[in-house]
Design a binder for these strands. Sequence first.
DNA 1: TTGTAGGCGTTATCAA
DNA 2: TTGATAACGCCTACAA
Lengths: 371, 371
Amino acid sequence: MAESTAKPPAKNSAKTSAKSRRGGRASKSGTKSPKLGMTESGKRVTSYDVARVAGVSQSAVSRCFKPGASVSKKMRDKVMTVAKELGFQPNAIARSLITRRSNMVAVIINNLTNLNYPELLVQLSRRFDERHVHVLLFTLEHESDVDKMLDQVWQYQVDGVISAARLSEEQVSFFEERGVPLVFYNRSFQDFPVSAICCNQEEGERLLVNKLHGAGHRNFAVISGPADSVVSNQRTQGALNRLKELGVTKVPVEEGDYGYDSGRIAFRHLMSKRKPPDAILCANDVMAIGCMDAARHEFGLKIPEDVSVVGFDGTSTGAWASYRLTTIDQPLEIMAEAAVNMLMERVENPELPPEKRTFSGVFLEGESAQL
Amino acid sequence: MAESTAKPPAKNSAKTSAKSRRGGRASKSGTKSPKLGMTESGKRVTSYDVARVAGVSQSAVSRCFKPGASVSKKMRDKVMTVAKELGFQPNAIARSLITRRSNMVAVIINNLTNLNYPELLVQLSRRFDERHVHVLLFTLEHESDVDKMLDQVWQYQVDGVISAARLSEEQVSFFEERGVPLVFYNRSFQDFPVSAICCNQEEGERLLVNKLHGAGHRNFAVISGPADSVVSNQRTQGALNRLKELGVTKVPVEEGDYGYDSGRIAFRHLMSKRKPPDAILCANDVMAIGCMDAARHEFGLKIPEDVSVVGFDGTSTGAWASYRLTTIDQPLEIMAEAAVNMLMERVENPELPPEKRTFSGVFLEGESAQL
DNA sequence: TTGTAGGCGTTATCAA
DNA sequence: TTGATAACGCCTACAA
């Protein structure tokens, strides 16, 4: 075991020859190495380099960078000094390989012009950062790309996944089978247990209907989002269901795509009906804004006198003085926080069963509806 | 060197004992392993598992997943079949360790409510994805966090960095010393060679000034962004410089924070001057919108009759019917594409010298200014 | 074309 | 508390 013949040569020959790279304790005081974090041979400084210069074992170096490890103060000082001197930082990739924790989570969003996602992303990123977890971003162009993307996510050995995109049951199983915690953001399954953070879309929409109906509106219309958007369907159904309960039927539904222009176009369509609506429920704020602009600028209508318009989301643009949109505010920050918590709990403890947390939206009274 | 005593046993003992995990060729036809991608002992399927089941060497498996490797069709079929059967995907972390390429790039943005960044992020992510490169997101809360963040970036061994946040000269050197390619987005240094993709802020602003001045405006004001924003300073200075050249001096400058409210507040301040402006240059679209709203709703002014307002960015909101903002459109998609290209070129060939590409903004005529 | 064996830079396990 | 040594899962000469 101590015969310095067979084993050592291979690994050590490199290390030994490397010993001359950086003369012992290169710096007396000011002779700092020119390239911090790099050896003279142009390679990344490793814990071996630090160990050599500090005259300790490599494992000692490793321990010094592990919080709560058993190291003497003397050792720690010595190692940390050299580490700083050489610009050493442990390689997270190598660490991930052995610990099986990458400290990375995947965030999946689809590329729709959902004015909310960008903000969500920033919120998530901030909160993960606080926990020293990093966000690996996956944006979907088309739903069909999902499977390839899932493979990528798996390859990168992420600790968990937050998905603001819909996944099929098989795709959910993909992660479940592999023991990768998954938390949905604003999507869920009824017939399949998954963890999710949601805003209660239906409830919010019902609230809006109640307000409008209570104010005497009877002539409703709905502008939905894209047909394949779960959130849009929930909102639209929420509105229609409540209206039905209140005895209002035959409510025209125009399909939009969440974008400004589609709101305008939908409004035009509604105005071409034999009985134009006096209250319009839009599946998001941006379409509501498009709707208002069409009403005012194309039809010369006054809002809310001639027609009431409400949205959903609580985006900052809705509050602009030109719109003062009445809407439901999704508590985005709270939801982001909750999503991060829920995911990290499951990363720490994979046995936790799926859980859903549903937040109510907050009614935001603007001036776009007669109430 | 060939004494089979010391070395082999250790490694092989594990592999051999593992051989019993999955009975040879588990599936005859339908007996699929319950958990795809996982061995029966609950570990991730590795290339060794595939090799064992397929009855080939591990390196053969590895080669089959390397595009353009020298493998017989028979071998490839055999391996790929088993791989699919077991749900094997190569571990990108392990691969990164040996190849020293993580196929991850860091994207650094600061958290300001810059309505453009989110969109930029989506664009970058899309384009990197196409190259099978993944985005590791870093958002800065405060400038002071930068250094900690840089260490993180380095630890994750990213192949390159795109920064839409300003970095100090030392911070730039950090990457340069370590051979990590860095491309700035809309920031640059004059006295330090770095790669960057920029929109020509100054030029755009001068264009706006020319148009306004040519239309007879003489009474200008500027609403700047935050004092520490490079882009804002470039825009503001561009405007002021051109105005000076045209003989217009004593131009009041109000400082905003890029947000809607700050545009409104700035407008109020301007109106309290003894000589209110008739042309206002705003450092971004959102402030211009705030400005317009204040003018209309707080002061009952007409735009552009009473006051001309122009912005900068070309955000979609600026085109909304209530604003029809005259502005400069930054070619975001083109810039994102260019940034990705520039970075990846340097990842492939680290010897490439720094390069700057500056795109001109496109004048977008709306109806918010008398021209 | 295929297999053998060494190394990438850590952490983890055990003696010392 | 410290130091040797074995993984982690892959890629890549080199040899067959």
